[in-house]
């Protein structure tokens, strides 16, 4: 047996079969129907499915065994602790990290981080990263021939306050092409990485923007197979958050879930 060696990451980004959008959309629709059928038959399904072949790079990377249900131990019921020692206040404004102003629509994204019982998750870390207004990531592997913006990196951090609230100022990202299939475009999105009160609540997700015409076409968005769950990842335009002559405002509330034991853990604090 030969030992496979790592392929250059650039070549890994393109799916070999380069299916048509029509085929991918068809696969998404039939998978969603099949998952709904399984749920009606009584199966307990996660919100995000790992086995989702329209997302081609998941085919060899998703587990095939059922995950093992386990009682969390202390280390899993607690979380790394963060505070302003870890993150400077300016890190939440992605528009002031360079000498000049980035191009694009200035926006604010604000929301509340809570657990499933609605209790605020205070003093925890939220990291975000995104493409620029032209849909280009600063990452060296992104070869999309859209311009880089010398005044925009696209990464930020914030620590939630006592009420679990956070706020970022940034630029609305553009949609971005990838090589999952022919003419594949991701809806505009901001990546979110969130720490809850326990390690079991750790969440990495993506926030989208209302009314994006690419929603139904995107295999990644649709790894979340229920409409109501996908809806929860779409930021809500809120005119109350829009600042005159400055920036439009979006609300994105985040709910981290953990097992029942996390309820007791946070009650005792």
């Amino acid at each position: 047996m030969t030992v496979p060696t790592a392929t250059a990451p650039e070549t890994l980004l393109a799916a070999p079969d380069q299916a048509s959008q029509r085929q991918i959309t068809g696969e998404i629709e039939s998978l969603h129907a099949e998952l709904a059928r399984r749920e009606r038959a009584g199966e307990d399904l996660p919100a995000t499915v790992h086995d989702f072949p329209p997302y081609r790079s998941s085919i060899l990377r998703h587990p095939t065994k059922s995950p093992k249900l386990v009682d969390p131990e202390t280390i899993e019921l607690l979380s790394p602790a963060f505070g302003q020692r870890d993150v400077a206040a300016v890190e939440s404004d992605l528009t002031i990290q360079h000498a000049g102003e980035p191009l694009g629509e200035r926006i604010t994204v604000q929301g509340r981080l809570t657990d499933s019982w609605g209790r605020p998750v205070a003093n925890q870390l939220i990291e975000i990263w995104q493409a620029n207004s032209a849909g280009r990531y600063i990452h060296q592997r992104d070869q999309h021939p859209a311009p880089l913006d010398p005044n925009f990196t696209g990464a930020g951090r914030a620590i939630t306050n006592e009420a679990g609230e956070y706020a970022f100022t940034t630029i609305k990202p553009g949609p971005y092409p990838w090589k999952n299939h022919l003419n594949a475009w991701r809806p505009a999105h901001i990546h979110f990485s969130v720490f809850g009160s326990s390690f079991t609540q750790r969440l990495v997700t993506q926030m989208y923007f209302p009314g994006d015409p690419l929603f139904a076409l995107d295999p990644i968005f649709n790894t979340i197979w229920r409409q109501k769950d996908r809806q929860s990842l779409i930021g809500v335009y809120d005119h109350e958050l829009t600042a005159p002559e400055w920036a439009t405002g979006y609300r994105f509330d985040i709910v981290v879930d953990g097992p029942d034991a996390t309820w007791f853990e946070n009650e005792s604090e």
Binding site: P9, L13, A47, T48, Y55, S58, T114, D115, S116, W117, G118, E127, I128, W129, Q130, Y137, I138, H139, R141, D142, T153, G154, A155, W178, H191, S193, L203, V204, T205, Q206, I220, F221, T223, I224, K228, D229, R230, S232, L233, I254, V255, V256, D257, D260, W263, F264
Partner: peptide, 25 residues
């Protein structure tokens, strides 16, 4: 003590995608 019912639906997770390095490094 019984755990009360959850009142909010959990936000679902998504992939980190290919370009996380400058975001979470």
């Amino acid at each position: 003590m019984a755990v009360p019912p959850r009142t909010l639906r959990a936000t679902p997770g998504q992939t980190v995608g290919p370009f996380f390095a400058y975001g979470v490094g």
